[in-house]
């Protein structure tokens, strides 16, 4: 049983979002980088839980990025990955990234591919579906629970206004969100062990990048809060109806 977990590097959730170079580049100065929370807390930790239940499970990690993503990969290895791949390229296009992941996945014959539900920086929620299509595999998006019974996966996923339970045979691509697993902190043994785990670097395969980022914008600042006295909440209701027209 082999699981491939897709890992992405994102700014910390509290990072200041600003841009440089005439609003064409994210301002990286002083930014703390983390493993995309959905990739780490849900995708990777659920894979680790499956390995704890069945020690024959092998967990591989993949990330598409330049050498500066390696601390993030080492952290993921410290949490519990067995081996990692880094495709040496820098891209924000989901199709380009998915093409690289699909190429590594083809060589590895994985039973399961886990991604986070989206990255917290580009929020495209696209890589899981694209990888699945490139490999012609079923894709279950936005999973909140994942159970395995032999070669059949039972997955709970979010739908509008509730949830549904879906069954599929492996191999399978799943995007993971809250509910799949609980956040963990790597222990010292894991951190020491991660230093010597294999991290294979490869060059990207030729793939198109159908989109490119032209520029960024930050939303206009709010005009400021209109405060209503605490003893007159009826005034708030009136403003919401007559001024804001939202009720």
């Amino acid at each position: 049983m082999k699981i491939l977990v897709c890992i992405s590097k994102t700014p910390d959730t509290t990072a200041k979002i600003a841009f440089t170079d005439n609003n064409t580049k994210f301002a990286e100065a002083g930014v703390q980088w983390i493993i995309n929370p959905y990739d780490e807390w849900y995708a990777l930790v659920r894979a680790i839980e499956l390995k704890e239940k069945d020690p024959s499970v092998v967990i591989h990690l993949i990330t598409v990025g330049t050498a500066d993503v390696e601390p993030i990969i080492r952290k993921a290895l410290a949490l519990g990955g067995d081996e990692a791949f880094r495709v040496n390229a820098s891209s924000h296009d989901s199709f380009f990234i998915s093409s690289q992941i699909a190429e590594i996945a083809k060589q590895g014959n994985y039973d399961l591919i886990f991604t986070g539900k989206e990255t917290i920086d580009y929020n495209s929620s696209s890589v899981g579906g694209m990888v699945a299509e490139l490999l012609d595999l079923p894709y279950i998006s936005l999973a909140t629970k994942f159970e395995l019974n032999g070669a059949t996966a039972t997955v709970t996923r979010e739908i509008e206004g509730g949830e549904e339970v879906v069954e599929a045979s492996l191999p399978l691509v799943v995007s993971c969100q809250k509910g799949m697993a609980e956040q963990r902190i790597p222990n010292m043994k894991g951190i020491m062990g991660a230093r010597t785990k294999p991290l294979k670097v490869s060059d990207p395969v030729n793939a198109e990048a159908p989109t490119s980022i032209i520029s960024f914008e930050t939303p206009p600042p709010k005009a400021g809060v209109k405060l209503i006295p605490a003893d007159n909440p009826a005034e708030l209701i009136r403003l919401l109806r007559e001024e804001a027209k939202v009720i």
Binding site: G129, E133, E160
Partner: peptide, 21 residues
């Protein structure tokens, strides 16, 4: 949720550029 499950697949199949969100 349906869009997120289908649009990326279709984009990969058609090799079409996708803007989500």
């Amino acid at each position: 949720l349906h869009g997120k499950a289908i649009a990326p697949r279709l984009a990969a199949k058609l090799k079409a550029g996708l803007v989500s969100g």
